[in-house]
């Protein structure tokens, strides 16, 4: 069983006030839950459902629909590699391949030490500077395997 910290709880309740129908607050509340718990599992869904007074089924329908909610633990550093057309032309698959090889994990997986995870994502709105990568909230562009290694070194 998961429960929200008091501050997150207050924030979520504030979101509920913003909309005429409480269901409308589900997306921001799910983001809050993801921030708090790291990912959205069954327990997190139930916690969100209880907080909002809706069915866990409604919560799951939404959290399953959107790819930006994770259902498994992600790494401390979550590497989101764009694979849309501009980045692909500029070598996104090489970047992905380099990460996978370096850590020995696949897309959507996490290293055993829990530090890193990889996810292939849609456009990061940097088509002019591909390949692009989002590490948590930090954007990195014009990537090469060497540049990737440098980024990883700074994350030690």
């Amino acid at each position: 069983m998961r429960s929200f910290s008091e501050s997150t709880r207050q924030q979520a309740l504030a979101y509920l006030e913003l909309y005429p129908k409480k269901e409308a607050a589900l997306l921001p509340v799910l983001h809050l839950a993801q921030k708090e718990f790291g990912f959205i599992d069954d327990d997190a869904e139930v916690a969100v459902a209880e907080l909002m007074g809706i069915s866990p089924i409604s919560v799951r329908e939404v959290s399953n629909f959107y790819f930006m909610y994770h259902h498994h633990p992600i790494g401390k550093y979550h590497f989101q590699v764009c694979h849309n057309i501009s980045c692909s032309i500029m070598g996104a698959e090489t970047i992905l391949g380099h990460l996978k090889k370096r850590w020995g994990i696949g897309n959507g997986e996490r290293t055993a030490d829990g530090r890193f995870s990889i996810e292939r994502v849609e456009c990061l709105a940097c088509c002019d500077r591909g390949p692009a990568l989002l590490v948590n909230q930090t954007l990195h562009t014009d990537l090469t395997p060497e540049k990737i290694d440098e980024i990883i070194e700074t994350l030690r």
């Binding site: 069954d42 089924i57 799951r60 329908e61 629909f65």
Partner: peptide
């Protein structure tokens, strides 16, 4: 009472009962 839901996205979307229900 909600007992069924439509979960997932795109071609993988499916109708099913919630786990445990």
């Amino acid at each position: 009472e909600r007992q069924l839901g439509i979960f997932g996205h795109g071609s993988n979307e499916k109708l099913i009962n919630y786990p445990g229900r």
